[in-house]
């Protein structure tokens, strides 16, 4: 069962790399925000998987809960910040 969790974690990390592409090369700022949000939601699952691998789920589940909260607040704050900015679209057309 441990090896299943290990392979699941490695697979999840590979998926996170795929999402990282959008976070780095996304044409607009909001595309990057989507990428970061996707990575954050995968990290929450990955943290519990790590807890299962090390058999310390009771500790890692609190970290996962805190990370989920933090991810939510970060996305809210960033989108509230960028919605005042004009010119999000200019960056996309500049490329």
């Amino acid at each position: 069962m441990q090896s299943i969790f290990l392979y699941a974690g490695v697979f999840l990390a590979c998926i996170m790399v795929l999402s990282l592409y959008r976070a780095v090369f996304g044409p607009t700022v909001l595309d990057r925000l989507i990428g970061v949000n996707a990575i954050g939601s995968k990290t929450t699952t990955l943290l519990i998987l790590i807890g299962l691998i090390y058999e310390r789920v009771d500790m890692f589940v609190d970290i996962a809960l805190a990370y989920a909260t933090l991810n939510f607040i970060a996305v809210l704050a960033a989108s509230r910040y960028f919605q005042k900015k004009k010119g999000l679209y200019d960056e996309a057309e500049g490329r």
Partner: peptide
């Protein structure tokens, strides 16, 4: 929140 930011920034 993300979609709202996009609408207000005027992304078509």
């Amino acid at each position: 929140a993300i979609v709202d930011a996009g609408v207000r920034a005027g992304l078509a």
